[in-house]
Design a protein around this nucleic acid. Structure first.
Lengths: 197, 197
DNA sequence: GGGCCATATTCCACAAGGGAAGATGGACGC
DNA sequence: GCGTCCATCTTCCCTTGTGGAATATGGCCC
C-alpha cells in the first residue's frame, strides 16, 4: 500500500505545467537563452504569468531532460540557447488545447484592509495612496506599450492581453477612489488603543 | 564562507509571512480550529488571499512552535482549537503596520490567449465563453454576499474587499465582451494547419 | 593589461498549492 | 446496542513558485 502519486495511465506526451508551457511557447519563435526568455516574458505576459529566474532555469533543465527542448552550443558567458524539439512542439500543442484554469490572485493589500481595524486610519490611507500611485504608473506604461504595439503591425492577441491590464488597472483605480470616500465617512468604530472586551 | 541566508539582526518579534498573519488575524475574534479558519477564509477573503488546507495546518503548527498561538485541548475528531497568545497579538500588530506588497496574479487564460495562434478560433472562443460564465456566477454571488453583509450591521472594510471583487469581475466581463468582438473581426493570420516558414 | 560593471547562470532556502491518505465521531439501519 | 458508512478533519508528501545571494565572465574603459 501507500504507493499513490503515480501517473495514472500511459501518458504519451509529457504533461506540462504552466511555466514549462509558456517557455515552450516563446521558443516557437526561435532559439532563446534563459536570459532572453526571461526578458521576453517580463516585458509582456509577465505581469499575469510571473516566471522568476530560478524557476525558468530550473524548468529549462527539466525540459531538456525530457527532450522537449535541446540545448545549442554554449556561447560566451555560459549563454545556452535552447531550441524547441519536435516532441516539445507536440507537448505544447497538446497543453494549449486544455481549458485554462482559474486565475489566482494574492493581494496583500486586501488582507491589510480586511483586518484594517488594527490599523490607524492614517496609515491605511497611506497604503491606499501608494497603491494609487503604483497603478497610475502602470497604466501609463501599459498605454505606451499599447501604442507601440499597435503602430508596429497588428498582434491582436497580445493587444488583448495588454488591454486586460489596462481595464484591470482602471478598475483598481476606480475602486481606490471609492473606498477613499468610504474611509473618510466611516471612521473606525474602535478607539485607537486596541481595547478588547 | 558560504554562510549567507542568516537572519541579519536580532529580531525581537517573530517575522510573519502573509499566511501566518492572516491566520492570526482571524484568531483575534476567538479560538478556532484549522477547519474553522479555512471555512472562514474561503468564504470571504479567500478569493484574494488563498490558503489551502495543507498550508493552513502547517502554518498553525509553526505558529504554535513559535508560541504565537496556543493549542486548546483537543475536542472530538482531533479537532484542535487554537487561540491567540499575547506574543501572537504583538507579532500581528507589527506585521500589519508594514506596507503591503504588490499583488500577484497568475492567469492561465492569458497565457493561452498570448499563444492563441496555436489554437483554433472556435476553441479559443469556447475558453472565453466559459470564463464569461464563471464571472457572471461570481458576480451574482458577490452581490448577494454584499447585500447580506450590508443588512447585517456595517463592516466597511470587508465590504470594501467585496466591492473590489465586484469591480474586478465587472472589468473582466467588459474585457471579455471587448475581445469577443476583436476575435470576430480578426481571424487568425495563419492557417489551421500550423505551417512554419 | 587590469579593474569593474553588466550580463547570465546556478544554488539554496522558504512559501504555497494540490491532492491523497488516515482517522474518527456520529448518523442511521437493524 | 452494534456494525457500517459517510462526512468531517487532520496529516503527509510531492510539486510548483518566490527570493535572493553566490558565482562566473565577457567586454568596456582607462
Amino acid at each position: 500500500m501507500a504507493q499513490a502519486n503515480l501517473p495514472k495511465g500511459n501518458v504519451n506526451v509529457s504533461k506540462l505545467n504552466g511555466t514549462q508551457a509558456s517557455l515552450l511557447g516563446f521558443l516557437h519563435e526561435g532559439p532563446r537563452t534563459g536570459w532572453e526568455l526571461l526578458e521576453e516574458i517580463s516585458s509582456g505576459l509577465g505581469r499575469f504569468w510571473n516566471v522568476t529566474q530560478s524557476h525558468a532555469y530550473r524548468e529549462l533543465k527539466v525540459l531538456e531532460e525530457k527532450g522537449l527542448v535541446a540545448a545549442g552550443q554554449r556561447g560566451p558567458r555560459e549563454r545556452c540557447p535552447f531550441s524547441l524539439t519536435e516532441k516539445g512542439r507536440k507537448a505544447f500543442a497538446q497543453w494549449i488545447q486544455e481549458e485554462p484554469g482559474p486565475e489566482q490572485i494574492r493581494f496583500p493589500l486586501l488582507v491589510s484592509l480586511w483586518f484594517g481595524e488594527h490599523l490607524s486610519p492614517r496609515r491605511l490611507a497611506r497604503f491606499l495612496n501608494s497603491q494609487r500611485q503604483v497603478r497610475q504608473e502602470r497604466l501609463a506604461q501599459y498605454r505606451k506599450a499599447q501604442d507601440s504595439l499597435r503602430s508596429s503591425g497588428e498582434h491582436p492577441r497580445r493587444d488583448a492581453v495588454l488591454r486586460f491590464g489596462i481595464l484591470y488597472e482602471e478598475a483598481m483605480l476606480r475602486w481606490l477612489e471609492e473606498i477613499r470616500d468610504t474611509a473618510k465617512h466611516q471612521p473606525p468604530t474602535r478607539r485607537r488603543i486596541p481595547r478588547r472586551r
